[in-house]
């Protein structure tokens, strides 16, 4: 199989998923609204003072991002499993990790990238000092692909179970901990006026490693799930 046809397969999978998603907009929009609503709850719960809100802002936004990634995980493989598309993907002569990579890509475009765009709104609501905004967006930009890829592994493993919600969180949330730690530390550094470049580079490294390995894990998970 040459590069040209590989590329065509990748784009076909992505275009199909995008086309389906655009006709089910609520599935795309709801996890994003969820983030905004969760963010809104915190000032109501802990009080609107800027000192406390500003301190927890990064953590709240990132935890909301983790949870919204889990919420949107059903979209990844659920329908494909139910309508038989997954079987066809597994039986396609194309390498399954490549197709999995395409699906991860669409998931990121529809759930990760919008979070980056939403970040300033959330940062404003939580009174995060402006000095941290850029770094927050940067950590989301390099961190959300990790979220999408790891979510795809979990979704692939649990798709045949039909009631994966709580189980999926149990599997995935512990694995998100490094992401949370480095992202929060990066923003903290930016607020203190020191360089956050170390953490951002570390996150970028983790992202590349995840994008390299996760498609194989997703492919293995899907092969088990079509059983």
């Amino acid at each position: 199989m040459n590069n040209m046809s590989m590329w065509r397969l990748l784009t076909t999978v992505m275009r199909r998923d995008l086309a389906v998603a655009l006709r089910r907009r609520s599935d795309v929009v709801n996890p994003l609204l969820f983030v905004v609503i969760v963010v809104t709850l915190f000032p109501l719960a802990v009080g609107p003072g800027p000192d406390i809100l500003g301190r927890i802002a990064t953590g709240v936004i990132w935890v909301a991002a983790l949870l919204s990634s889990l919420l949107g995980s059903e979209r990844l493989f659920r329908d494909d499993f139910l309508d038989g598309t997954l079987e066809q993907l597994v039986l396609s002569p194309a390498p399954l990790p490549l197709l999995a990579f395409g699906k991860v890509g669409v998931h990121w475009l529809l759930s990760g990238l919008p979070l980056v765009v939403l970040a300033p709104l959330c940062a404003m609501l939580l009174k995060l000092p402006i000095a941290g905004w850029g770094t927050l967006m940067l950590t989301l930009l390099v961190g959300t692909p990790i979220l999408s890829a790891m979510t795809a592994i979990g979704a692939g493993l649990t798709v045949s179970l039909g009631r994966g919600g709580a189980l999926l969180s149990l599997l995935l949330l512990p694995l998100f901990i490094p992401l949370l730690i480095f992202a929060a530390a990066a923003v903290e550094n930016a607020l203190l006026g020191t360089s956050a470049i170390g953490q951002v580079l570390l996150l970028t490294g983790l992202m590349l490693l995840t994008l390299l390995l996760a498609p194989f894990a997703v492919a293995a998970a899907l092969r088990v799930s079509v059983n």
């Binding site: 389906v20 006709r23 089910r24 329908d79 038989g84 079987e87």
Partner: peptide, 14 residues
Amino acid sequence: LLFIGHKPAVKAEL
């Protein structure tokens, strides 16, 4: 080989 299972692999939205 070509496999068509009892699930038709047709996307309902498309």
